[in-house]
Design a protein around this nucleic acid. Structure first.
Length: 490
RNA sequence: CGGGGCGUGGCCCAGCCCGGUUAAGGCGCCUGGUUUGGGACCAGGAGAUCGCAGGUUCGAAUCCUGCCGCCCCGACCA
């Protein structure tokens, strides 16, 4: 079964789809735009969840769960919010089916029409803020720091596995604060959490910044984001954190009593990352051989493959492999021994490479004699023979190296492909060349729009770091307060 | 919503233009054997209302009409 991935150079999006399907991460479901996340793919997501959840808890947040269904009227309470999401909402109109009087199957029972239609949440601000009104009375109830892990539905026109599906999994944090400064600090803090997760766990370098007004979350005063560069040079928004001001507090009348007895509207934030991170992970690290996983998120960090001839040898070698497995396990390494006799070693090598397992340990008859094993790195595809003595220590340090090497490779790619330009011709050329482009922009939505229409590139963010000296707009020639980051995006 | 593609055992697909016995092949699966340091081989076996509904015909996977579904490329978005 010679699974051959489409090479990246030939067709990048086909390569991406091949990896998702062939590495057993997910498949298309029978429902348009929806996917089935398979056990191996879900295991990676579970790792992400586990780590992120820990980070949220460390920063004082608690998990809760709010309903999937939102009364239609809630959505319309915040004007910008409804405008942003109305176009992509799934609507529940009935609550019952009945047998088809004219034939087979079931039909919607017209007598079971809902008085008020329900929206399947595209995000939960409205239902959460409607609830917060009941939870918050006093400054003593603040800050309120809540996160939920949930599924949401956005009826997009065009979908792609993990990157944009009709239903997706995510977390959404929703916090309430007594002061603007505190809410802004929270917004910034959670963006830093995302950036840390992306870089230290996913080995994916990110650019942090503010969105422009037109790219802002519907209902937010400010949206912060992390943007990552995929191997084809396109930008992927990997996480967002929103400062919502008092918009939702006003819409849902959430006030608190201040120390001196006054009534004030609370200040809000929301922030989220989704299963889209799976797509980001794939497109940042993987190669033409298949998935490449950062050790810290790999469900299996090291796989042990026995190599043998005949039954007697098998028993002897598998026994040795079990020792190694126990040894690595007790050193806290997520290890799997694949002693399935129905598959040959060569098949296993190819399979675990496709699935991105960071390290492979092969033990054969020669190794048994020499007290060695073959250690193979997925990222560099290099092999070496190593003594079994002290293997756990070596495995741990190699996994650490893989993690840092993956990050630094991706980091170099990001910096090598980020350029500053000052003229329109240079700009067009750099965008065509799939670069991240730092260029001057006059700050108007008109110019932003014009540029994106003419080049397909959008302003990814006003970066936190980098050159912020004034200049002249690359498109209009008008004065520009600073350079901003442009790129083609997913 | 426009443009393109596809729908045939679990998966990939040939066959369709040019209708005709039993729908071909590969992968996977089951049984037995030989194998095992980079996707093994041999023998045997199971498994298909050819997306759905009509129509044409002595006869339809194949031709005609309608419908459904999915994927890919564009316009909206995380």
């Amino acid at each position: 079964m010679a699974k051959k991935l489409t090479p990246r150079s030939e067709d990048y999006s086909k390569w991406y789809n091949d990896i998702v399907v062939d590495a057993d991460l997910a498949q298309h479901s029978d429902v348009k735009g929806c996917m089935v996340i398979k056990p191996y793919g879900y295991a990676i997501w579970e790792r992400m969840k586990e780590v992120l959840d820990g980070m949220f808890k460390e920063t004082g947040h608690s998990n809760a769960y709010f309903p999937l269904f939102i009364p239609k009227s809630y959505l319309s309470k915040e004007a910008d919010h409804v405008e942003g999401f109305a176009k992509e909402c799934a609507v529940i109109t009935h609550y019952r089916l009945k047998n088809n009087p004219d034939g087979d199957g079931v039909v919607v029972d017209p007598d079971a029409k809902l008085e008020e239609e329900l929206i399947v949440r595209p995000t939960s601000e409205t239902i959460i803020w409607n609830t917060y009104r009941k939870w918050i009375q006093s400054y003593r109830d603040l800050p309120l720091l809540i996160n939920q892990w949930a599924n949401v539905v956005r009826w997009e026109m065009r979908t792609r596995l993990f990157l944009r599906t009709t239903e997706f999994l995510w977390q959404e944090g929703h916090t309430a604060h007594a002061t603007q400064a505190e809410a802004e600090e929270e917004t910034r803090q959670m963006l830093e959490v995302y950036a840390k997760f992306a870089e230290e766990w996913m080995a994916m370098p990110v650019v942090k910044g503010n969105k422009t007004e037109s790219e802002r979350f519907a209902g937010a005063l400010d949206t912060l984001c992390i943007e990552a560069m995929m191997q084809d040079g396109k930008a992927l928004q990997a996480g967002t954190s929103h400062f919502l001001g008092q918009n939702f507090a006003r819409a849902f009348d959430v006030k608190f009593a201040t120390k001196d007895g006054g009534q004030e509207l609370v200040w809000a934030t929301s922030w989220g990352v989704s299963t889209r991170l799976m797509g980001a992970l794939i497109m940042t690290l993987s190669d033409d051989q298949g998935l490449v996983l950062p050790p810290k998120l790999a469900p299996i960090e090291a796989v042990i493959v026995p190599i043998y001839k005949g039954q007697d040898q098998m028993e002897e070698i598998v026994a040795k492999c079990r020792e190694i497995e126990a040894d690595l396990k007790s050193a806290g390494i997520r290890v799997k021994l694949d002693d399935d006799d129905a598959k040959r070693s060569g098949w296993k090598f190819a399979e675990y490479e496709l699935k991105g397992v960071p390290l492979r340990i092969a033990v054969g008859p020669r190794d048994l004699e020499n007290g060695t094993c073959e250690l193979a790195r997925r990222d560099t595809r290099t092999k070496s023979f190593e003594p079994l003595e002290g293997l756990a220590t070596l495995v741990r340090s190699t996994l650490n190296s893989i993690q840092t090497d993956l990050f630094s490779t991706a980091k170099s790619r990001l910096s090598e492909n980020t350029v500053e330009v000052d003229t329109w011709d240079e700009f067009k050329a750099a965008i065509k060349d799939s670069k991240f482009v730092m260029a001057h922009w006059d700050g108007t939505a008109e110019t932003e729009d014009l540029i994106s229409q003419q080049t397909k590139a959008s302003i990814r963010c006003l970066t936190f770091e980098g050159d912020t000296t004034p200049g002249t707009c690359v498109k209009s020639g008008n004065p520009s307060p600073r350079r901003v980051l442009f790129a083609k995006a997913y």
